[in-house]
Amino acid sequence: MKVKKYMAPSMAEAMKRIREELGSDAIILSSKAVYIGGFLGLFKKRNIEIIAAIDPVSQPNQMVTKQKTKKLPVKQEISSNSTVTQEGNNESADLLKELEGLKDMIKTIQIASERHYPGKLQKIKDYLTEQEVDVQLRSQIMDELLGKWFALKQQSTDEEVQGWLEEALFEVLEKAQNGKPGLQKKYINIVGPTGVGKTTTLAKVAAETMLRHGKKVAFITTDTYRIAAIDQLMTYAKILNVPIEVAYNLEDLKKATERFSHYDFVFIDTAGRNFRNPQYVKDLSEIIDFTDEMETYLVLSLTSKQKDMEDIYRQFASIPIKQIIFTKADETSTFGAIFNFIHAHKLGAAYITNGQNVPDDIEKATSSQLLKTAFGAKKYERSS
């Protein structure tokens, strides 16, 4: 094995150096806070001291000592049980003492090299892997948890370790604004590919705006590629008793916006394929200013693959996306995409849906609600 001591101003910096020098399979043997410098015992700087190790199996050459040891006097024998009696052997005695102290650590390394993390943390890593959390984000979270694990001398319970994970994921979510849909502009544009529940989601948001906030709303659909989509939105309009216009072209859309000029909000259901055409976006922007008059929400299904979500996001990159709406939370048991997407793009979620019922089955996607969705029925008393 190769064991090395690191000193850094923060755990993150220490982990970075360890990964660069020893690789991602390195194991943390111990960590503690140390204070150095200062004047007359004051103003000392806090640093993190970490002892890390790497399994030599994959890197046998690293076992070779880079520094030559001092030549010992003739007939001196060094072993774990020997007693050093000759002059000039203090350094050797210290070395033997350190090696003796590392005996238990070696056992830890052997176990950890097979499982990569101590038992309780391995369960967390397995969970994140099963949830399809991105490798980079997963490593970042595990580094943070590993630091806490050794800082507390490996005495933490399963519940405490679970709490660390929830705190780490909560911090990821809090880097974006979640659960606070603006609805500050007149036109609410709902975009997304076919099959993600876009039309149903539009109806849910409109119903909440009308029933809970007393606003006057209307519908416009430009998704004329699918007759079923028009019929579906017309049904919702009838149930909610709100007007609807079908815009087959830009001229129809212009007339519809004029008709609904005195309404508080106009919800627009669009065909996802339109936004592949730059000319369509250009023409539409001549009628409605995407920046000053419209808020656009991108609908992503949690049943989609991560790569598909990224492709969809790029497809709609020609218009400003305010927030994401995650749908079909009830149709999957894998929620890593929520954390991956928010972490990668720093783009918050406005709503999350978990069924077909209108106006129910929709929640504001606060960070606490997203955590609750990912961890099941567990309650979170966080404000976000």
Rank of each mutant, 00 (worst) to 15 (best):
292 D>R: 13
348 G>Y: 07
290 F>G: 09
300 L>M: 13
305 K>Y: 12
284 L>V: 08
285 S>I: 04
311 D>G: 10
286 E>K: 15
345 H>C: 02
355 G>T: 11
324 I>K: 06
312 I>W: 04
295 E>K: 07
339 F>L: 11
330 D>T: 00
282 K>A: 13
356 Q>Y: 00
283 D>N: 12
290 F>S: 03
301 S>H: 01
289 D>V: 10
287 I>T: 10
351 Y>P: 08
347 L>V: 11
305 K>S: 14
311 D>F: 07
292 D>C: 08
311 D>W: 07
310 E>P: 01
343 H>D: 12
309 M>C: 15
305 K>P: 01
348 G>K: 05
356 Q>R: 07
311 D>N: 15
316 F>Y: 11
349 A>M: 09
297 Y>R: 10
309 M>T: 10
317 A>K: 15
283 D>L: 09
296 T>Y: 03
296 T>I: 06
329 A>Y: 02
284 L>S: 05
357 N>V: 12
357 N>M: 12
342 I>S: 03
324 I>C: 01
294 M>R: 13
283 D>C: 01
316 F>W: 02
326 F>D: 04
292 D>V: 13
315 Q>V: 10
350 A>R: 04
322 K>T: 08
327 T>M: 06
330 D>L: 02
286 E>T: 15
305 K>Q: 13
345 H>M: 05
303 T>A: 05
320 P>D: 05
335 F>G: 03
355 G>F: 02
344 A>P: 06
297 Y>W: 05
302 L>F: 07
311 D>E: 13
348 G>A: 12
322 K>H: 10
356 Q>S: 06
319 I>G: 03
327 T>C: 11
353 T>S: 08
338 I>R: 13
338 I>Q: 12
340 N>V: 11
303 T>G: 00
288 I>N: 03
334 T>S: 05
323 Q>I: 01
306 Q>G: 07
337 A>M: 06
354 N>Y: 10
340 N>E: 09
292 D>P: 01
283 D>F: 08
299 V>H: 02
319 I>R: 12
307 K>Q: 13
289 D>S: 15
317 A>C: 11
320 P>A: 08
318 S>H: 13
309 M>H: 14
290 F>D: 01
341 F>C: 04
326 F>R: 10
301 S>M: 01
293 E>Y: 06
316 F>E: 04
304 S>T: 02
305 K>N: 11
309 M>D: 05
354 N>L: 12
331 E>M: 09
299 V>S: 01
354 N>D: 08
297 Y>E: 13
285 S>N: 12
333 S>N: 13
326 F>E: 05
355 G>C: 06
321 I>F: 10
300 L>K: 08
320 P>K: 07
282 K>W: 01
336 G>P: 06
316 F>T: 02
294 M>S: 14
309 M>L: 12
311 D>M: 13
290 F>P: 00
324 I>E: 02
286 E>Q: 15
297 Y>I: 11
321 I>A: 11
356 Q>I: 04
320 P>Y: 08
292 D>G: 10
314 R>N: 14
356 Q>C: 12
315 Q>W: 04
288 I>K: 01
333 S>P: 00
290 F>Q: 06
351 Y>T: 00
317 A>L: 10
321 I>K: 14
287 I>F: 04
282 K>I: 03
346 K>S: 11
327 T>K: 05
356 Q>W: 04
333 S>T: 12
283 D>Q: 15
297 Y>M: 10
329 A>W: 00
356 Q>M: 09
341 F>M: 15
300 L>W: 08
302 L>Q: 07
